[in-house]
């Protein structure tokens, strides 16, 4: 098909969808719709992981981001009952300024990406690294210390969240 393999076609379609949904997150007025589009974006990113042969990462991405974090987002937005009317209207001036700043950022990014075609990416590891068995072996042998540090970081975040959530500290 037009000289592309199925994987390339899939990559194109999924990339298009993920960028489209990501834009819809920003452009929709209703916050609930934004959250739902963000969930769809996460699904597209999970599909990208699948294309990279990283099943574990893909499923965990769905379970954690789409399944847990976004549900909590939805929770909060539903409870606050935001809708189109309560959204603050920006003035023309601030829209103009935001447009210019965003455009400048785009120019900088394009400039920074201009020289990247000379960059040679060396493939690190092997293509089966995404399989859970290989991933676990690497994580718990070569990268055990960073892994433990990350777990302590998460634990401290957890404790902090509970402390903030408490009504009064005795």
């Amino acid at each position: 098909m037009l000289g592309y393999t199925i994987t390339q076609w899939l990559f194109g379609i999924i990339s298009f969808l993920s960028i489209m949904f990501a834009l819809m997150v920003v452009f929709t007025r209703n916050p609930i719709n934004s959250v739902l589009y963000l969930v769809l974006t996460f699904f597209c990113i999970a599909a990208h992981y699948l294309l990279l042969n990283a099943q574990f990462l893909a499923i965990v991405h769905i379970a954690v981001y789409a399944g847990a974090i976004m549900v909590l987002f939805l929770f909060v937005i539903m409870l606050m009952n935001l809708n189109q009317d309560s959204e603050p209207q920006k003035t023309m001036m601030s829209k103009l300024i935001a447009g210019i700043i965003g455009g400048l950022l785009l120019v900088v990014l394009v400039g920074a990406l201009k020289g990247t075609e000379q960059l040679q990416l060396s493939q690190v590891g092997h293509s089966e690294i995404g399989i859970v068995k290989n991933l676990g072996r690497v994580l718990f042998h070569e990268y055990l210390f960073p892994f433990e540090i990350v777990s302590i970081l998460l634990l401290s975040a957890l404790v902090g969240a509970i402390m903030i959530g408490k009504k009064e500290i005795k």
Binding site: F56, I59, G67, L74, V132
Partner: peptide, 16 residues
């Protein structure tokens, strides 16, 4: 090959 996590993921999507 990550069946159990898939199961957990699907149940958590069910909330939507």
């Amino acid at each position: 090959n990550v069946g159990i996590i898939f199961l957990l993921g699907v149940t958590s999507i069910g909330v939507y």
